[in-house]
Design a binder for these strands. Sequence first.
DNA 1: CGGTGCCTTGATTTTCATCAACACCTGTGG
DNA 2: CCACAGGTGTTGATGAAAATCAAGGCACCG
Lengths: 231, 231
Amino acid sequence: MNKLDESLLTGLPPFSRLDRKQIRTILDAATPKRHDEGATVFAAGADADRFFLLLDGFIRVIRATPDGEQIVALHISPGQLFGIAQALGRTTYPATAVAASELLTLSWPTKLWSSYTAEYDGFATETYRTVGERMGEIHARVEELATQAVEKRVASALLRMANQSGRRTDEGVEIGFPVTRANIAEMTGTTLHTVSRLLSGWERDGIVASTRRHVVITKPHQLVLLSGVSG
Amino acid sequence: MNKLDESLLTGLPPFSRLDRKQIRTILDAATPKRHDEGATVFAAGADADRFFLLLDGFIRVIRATPDGEQIVALHISPGQLFGIAQALGRTTYPATAVAASELLTLSWPTKLWSSYTAEYDGFATETYRTVGERMGEIHARVEELATQAVEKRVASALLRMANQSGRRTDEGVEIGFPVTRANIAEMTGTTLHTVSRLLSGWERDGIVASTRRHVVITKPHQLVLLSGVSG
DNA sequence: CGGTGCCTTGATTTTCATCAACACCTGTGG
DNA sequence: CCACAGGTGTTGATGAAAATCAAGGCACCG
């Protein structure tokens, strides 16, 4: 069994203040795993027996309503911890984590959590910072849903995804994972029909270019204007 | 200067595992303060130099959008810590805390935070549990805003407030702090006109009874049905 | 007793969900 | 290799929900 390379963790916020030996110890306790696109990493309500680090790919965090609808709470980018129910004083996962693209993860048994936060300098503070950022992101979602019209919400959602995962291409900025009209609708609290109409319109205006399950933002600035900065 | 009574903290989750002497020490470091209804305890973006415990009254946590609109993120009940930016790895308050009713608070300088979490058993875990609960609450808000019609959102908001602060009266359950139509609109992402119409309708049906700035839920069960349990 | 904040109600308009139909792409299994 | 199914995307027509526009009333405070 070949060992994981230490460079995987070096420089990531939760581990940035640790030395080589500490990182080695942590890596040796980690279980790496590949997940296919669409796979469920863990489900809401399940026993939080492990916590995770996303090495590559993107996670979609989903919550299902009692009546079967799904909503996308947020996306997680490479380098971030997730499934950290412990940091919220919980013993079950609060939401479902689905692979938005093919994934590479590391995971550790939950029981290591308390020793990591106690022993490793910066691990606790950095993970709480992550929690704080997600809190802020969700707050921003509430604001959007409560005050903005659908068009602005969809524009904001596209920009958010582009910021988190965007790849520059010669056409513009491409969102770094597959995303359907229905996905965008679940993010913005609307229907796939409305999203489709908006994207069609923007495509006509040359602001975005989309193929099946992929979106390229060709005129980010225009989209920013639509997202409602100052108006 | 008369000392604060230890019974103020005894039994509250963050302090429940501490002994008399520890509680005494913590209390001696606390600054008590009264706030009038409508007063701002701290403002979003301000330097988080203190953290707070709400002894009596209710806090409304508010965020303002760039274009001047306000949204009510959540309410805080007596016995809860608030303004705990440190727990989220932040140095500024993420939102504004306004007194929904007359208030009594204790507060401590931020610099004590790290020693409290380190020294006092249960303080950290319990406050992170609080953070987790608020996270869950906000998630629930996102779900509501994304999937439920206005009527259900308003019904849910009333029930939530009643659960957190309700007082039994012979008429029904009264929400324990002043609340205007505009406040409810800010909680549910609608307008005060729509809220007014809904409340008028429910008043006709005998489900609620409201006077200026006060709401009594006379038929909670009916309201639960309207809030959309299984439908 | 005047002013401000809170609340109500009607009329009109806009936005967006819903209903409906169809086109296309991709992978699968006969 | 083709047929077909299931997931994805488009677009039009219609209707309902809720915002907006508008006006006024009532209660509480100084």
